[in-house]
Design a protein around this nucleic acid. Structure first.
Lengths: 287, 287
DNA sequence: CGATTTTGTTCAGAGATGTGAACGGGGGTT
DNA sequence: AACCCCCGTTCACATCTCTGAACAAAATCG
């Protein structure tokens, strides 16, 4: 079991308490409650209390109060037979509110299915969170092809076409800040493993208006992605199609083959999806 | 804007602090964080900080710390242009973990679509949460019919066929506890409006193994629902089909028409969905 | 463009929460 | 069946959070 690397970091440096460990003036119980949810979300089989304790380094007596609140409110439930805590129905319900905001649940599906039928390839929609892309929706090709991605899952943005499109849209300064001190994970020899090269690739993506992934995460898988812009021009997501490299053909013109259909679909999706800023912008609380 | 009635209540009566307002020894910030999420989940357009404050009765200075934690962790984000807080992507991500646990995302859809094709009516899957049924999945009929329900939404269980099936499965004592002091909302003349009658109906449902809803929530809408049992026989959800009363016909044999198909599908779904207890069981923390 | 109202931030005292150690209870094991 | 081990619970003290009012900063309005 791996604990996710600290995904988000506040820019605020104000510190009240003095000792400061991490949160910098943050509210301990609030933080912990969310950490527990984060942790449990990654564990389909749930976690026993002692496992949560050791994963998050919480004292025994502190954890129980938190778990009781989470259980009482339905965000977590305990499977009594195995004494394991799992994500509860209330967490799901709250999450649905997000996809309703973005119209993902009802409106986006049919449009994406059309594109899938047009291309007969797997089609995906993702947004950026930190340095990961997060899959909002997916319509599988009818051809047999299993992707490791899936709705609600995340992959490192620098390894996917979707991710590169989304990263390319960030202001340079923001991009550098997010990349500062980060080591880009490599999954095979084609993965972009260093920041300078990533920045060069992103510049190309920005100019071309689309990104490719030629087996950079999964060997043998080729993807093309384009940004999804709302009517105001803001990038609200990215749209991709994925296929075995063999089916994509070779040479520099294989990506452009898919662009017209992808772009047409992206335009429709952009009109559907509410014009919301990148989640990360939540930091700008203090102005 | 209405605030949901306190949905869950712990059975624990232990009380540490003494003053007790509500939570009885609960952790204030933890509770508040979840309350904020609950509140924002119901507001597609988000809420400004003062609105959150008045809705939850929080002091000005307390709210900001909580919101900062929620924003930093991505559970909430602030739309800077309108200064409104909304449910964030992380909340969605965590919620997806729940539907993955129950296999709702990937496996349940195709099976339900088959049933829809068989019956050519809208098919829905729901679980119980307190006295509400919560829609996990839905496959629309191809005939024009708009239901007020939808994935992630909840309706009072006593007004729907799904809800009645789910309530009927509760042990009598648990049922009485949940109904204690509750006034059953009425939506039209057919809605079951008093507890004794509800208990009688539920007894019939228990015996028959299915429930009907003949316009009790939406006038003119007829539904039939059956329990979804896992291989061990535990009810893990309920499955229904809905149609305009006109199409259902009249007389006592209209529901049985749908039962064979519904039950066959429910059996398949039960095998797919992990054997998880009712969310409410989370209360049994103390053993 | 300036005044006004509303919102966000800061601060120190009051009060509730977090902590660690000891107790009680189950479950698994031999 | 009894033991042992581990988990969950309880408690009082130290600590950190919550609070309310005053201040500062926007946003709105005329």
């Amino acid at each position: 079991m791996t604990i996710l690397p600290e995904p988000r970091r506040t820019t605020h440096s104000a510190n009240r308490g003095g000792t400061a460990g991490d949160g910098a003036g943050s509210i301990k119980s609030a933080e912990r409650v969310l950490r527990i949810l984060d942790l449990l979300a990654g564990q389909p089989d749930g976690l026993a209390a002692p496992e949560i304790r050791s994963a998050l380094g919480l004292p025994k007596s502190s954890l129980h109060g938190l778990l009781r609140v989470l259980c009482d409110r339905g965000y977590v439930f305990i499977d009594a037979r195995v004494r394991r805590y799992r994500i509860g129905i209330r967490a799901w319900e709250v999450g649905q509110a997000y996809s309703r905001i973005r119209n993902v649940a009802v409106l986006v599906g049919p449009v994406m299915r059309e594109l899938r039928d047009q291309l007969n390839e797997t089609v995906q929609l993702a947004v950026l969170d930190g340095l990961d892309n997060l899959y909002l929706a997916k319509v599988d090709s009818e051809q047999p092809l299993r992707l490791v991605s899936g709705v609600g899952l995340r992959l490192p943005a620098h390894t996917t076409a979707l991710g590169k499109v989304l990263l390319a849209d960030l202001p340079t300064e923001e991009l550098r800040r997010r990349l500062a001190g980060v080591t880009l994970a490599r999954f095979n020899s084609r993965t972009i493993g260093d920041t300078p090269r990533l920045l060069r690739v992103l510049a190309e993506v920005r100019q071309a208006g689309y990104a490719e992934d030629d087996g950079e995460y999964t060997v043998g898988l080729f993807c093309v992605a384009v940004p999804v812009r709302d009517p105001a021009g803001t990038v609200v997501a990215a749209l991709s199609c994925s296929m075995p490299s063999a089916r994509a053909g070779v040479g520099p013109e294989r990506a452009p083959n898919f662009l017209p259909a992808l772009r047409a679909c992206a335009t429709r999706l952009g009109a559907l999806m509410a014009p919301l800023p990148d989640p990360q912008d939540g930091l700008a609380l203090g102005g």
